[in-house]
Design a protein around this nucleic acid. Structure first.
Length: 481
RNA sequence: GACCCUAUCAUCUAGUGGUUAGGAUACAACCCUCUCAAGGUUGGUACACGGGUUCGAAUCCCGUUAGGGUCGCCA
């Protein structure tokens, strides 16, 4: 049997991390077995329609490398792949399900129901829908429909039975049917609800593996009842635990948490995000932590999926992102860093060398901004900064070092390359009978005004160039008196 | 409230009856070093609780507690 899995987002205009992980697992499960990955757009909620939201889905999947084999933009043998274009199908199968006694027509209006609910609430009673339409004869119901009455189709459930299903990660689950709600399958506007559309589409599209969040675990028995009523094969279920923001809250855009787009904007690499979320809820049973998409496809297995929720740990993502950055070629890193340089640096400087200095020091690309701001403008700093116990240096030493450095750096040759600068500066400690740190700490401070910088005096001087370096040294000499 | 699900370091997790409870992130220390990183070495921290079953339970069973989910003409 060829595995067919599907990603079925309702387009909201952004991709949240939980959805992306679901899509990833769906893709990996299919591709691991050489199967197909199908994209289906679930746009049955007319009230939540967002312009352009479908494009975000396409762009994200493409960026991440989850290539779907069938979908609205690609076609396929089981289309249409947009639910709003499948309306006649749902109606047809709803009627069929009524014939099969798996559903019934209901003429109660939403308002009526709401009234009943509120009345029950007022009395402090738990609301139980009595569903008068359930007892209508089929002839009578069809007559009322013919007369143009608004109606919905509700699932019909035998309350005296039990329903059991197997989930590949949670195992065997059994519930008593009386705890199941006879929910609406077809709305009065003719659109199906998720509960119905999913069953119909998954069956019609030959989906073999249904992979989704575990919030659907409790409604799965209802889907099975429909499959059974239709006499259809039940798919393999794989329910995924949620990704949490903390111990209590799910990760969600609504809580102000980062979406895939947000993470990208912050300077996280697509590959790193994918790598991280693959590991959030799945373990490869080895100690490997860095996986390319090819490796994920090769190694992914359902047995490694966890049952317990996982908290999204941005620190670990940062680390993984840093690993990816350090593994990049200098050219690639430079390309990624360029937009950030443009934002933060007006002065002209050797950006290639800057990239060389920065690459091992950056975990998230947006960190670049804070790392390079001193190039444009010398920050204010306290004289105290020249006193450094560990470097065994202080103001007195600084007063001696800075003028010597100023003189040394009059020589243009030092600015020809990072190596030349290093060589030049390293002559100072010996000449002055001082330790490296005693000489270089003051110079670096004078050039950067910062407690910490990426690179040392050598890098700062070389990158600033002769003119600016000399100017800053002069200023510092004035400052220390 | 009813039903379903979950429970190992701060975090992600390994572990499927016998382990000094392993790894990674984070944290700390040290080394390296012109600061900061990177790299290297080392370290501390966990089986929610209570009962069983068993010669022996993180592992099996029951309960408690805690948390999550579902109960929409949302998905």
């Amino acid at each position: 049997m060829t595995i067919r899995s599907r990603f079925a987002p309702s387009p909201t205009g952004y991709m949240h991390i939980g959805n992306l992980r679901t899509a990833l697992y769906e893709y990996l499960i299919a591709k691991n077995a050489g199967g197909s990955f199908i994209l289906r757009i679930e746009d049955t909620d007319q009230e939540r329609f967002v312009e352009g939201a479908v494009d975000v889905v396409y762009e994200t999947l493409k960026d991440v490398g989850l290539i779907h084999d069938e979908g609205p933009d690609k076609g396929g043998a089981f289309g249409p792949y947009i639910q709003s274009e499948r309306l006649p199908l749902y109606k047809e199968y709803a009627d069929k399900l009524v014939d099969l006694k798996g559903a019934h027509y209901c003429f109660c209006s939403a308002e009526e129901l709401e009234e009943k609910k509120q009345a029950a609430e007022k009395q402090g009673k738990a609301f139980k829908f009595d569903d008068p339409c359930k007892h209508l004869s089929l002839e009578e119901a069809r007559e009322r429909i013919k007369n143009g009455e608004k109606y919905t189709v509700r699932q019909t459930i035998d309350p005296f039975k039990k329903t059991t299903f197997i989930d590949e990660v949670y195992g065997r689950i059994t519930v008593e049917n009386k705890t199941l709600d006879e929910g609406i399958l077809l709305k009065s506007d003719g659109y199906p609800t998720y509960n119905f559309a999913n069953v119909i589409d998954d069956h019609l599209m030959n989906i073999t593996h249904v992979i989704r969040g575990n919030e659907y675990l409790s409604s799965t028995p209802k889907y099975n009842l429909m499959y059974e009523a239709f006499g259809w094969n039940i798919p393999t279920y794989i329910h995924l635990p949620p990704i949490m923001k903390d111990a209590h809250n799910k990760l969600s855009k609504r809580n102000g948490d980062a979406s895939f787009q947000d993470l990208k904007a912050k300077g996280y690499l697509t590959e790193a995000i994918v790598n991280y979320i693959a590991l959030l809820g799945w373990n490869p049973k080895t100690e490997q932590e860095i996986f390319s998409m090819e490796e994920l496809i090769k190694n992914f297995n359902i047995q490694g999926i966890n049952k317990a929720p996982a908290i999204f740990d941005i620190e670990k993502l940062k680390w993984i992102n840093g690993v990816y950055i350090r593994n990049m070629s200098l050219e690639d890193f430079h390309k990624k860093a360029l937009p950030y340089y443009e934002k933060a640096i007006k002065r002209k400087l050797d950006l290639e060398t800057l990239s060389k200095v920065l690459q091992p020091r950056v975990n998230v690309l947006s960190e670049i901004i804070d790392l390079v701001d001193f190039f444009d403008e010398m920050p204010d700093y306290d004289l105290e900064m020249y006193c450094h116990k560990k470097m065994k240096t202080d103001l007195d030493i600084t007063r001696k070092v800075l003028p010597v450095a100023l003189e040394l750096l009059q020589d243009k040759k030092a600015f020809e390359s990072l190596e030349a600068m290093h060589e030049a500066l390293m002559t100072l400690p010996e000449k002055m009978g001082l330790k490296n740190g005693q000489v270089l700490w003051p110079i670096r401070t004078a050039l950067t005004g910062k407690q910490f910088t990426a690179g040392g005096a050598t890098e700062a001087a070389y990158l600033l160039g002769q003119e600016e370096t000399l100017a800053r040294l002069k200023k510092a000499i004035e400052k220390v008196g």
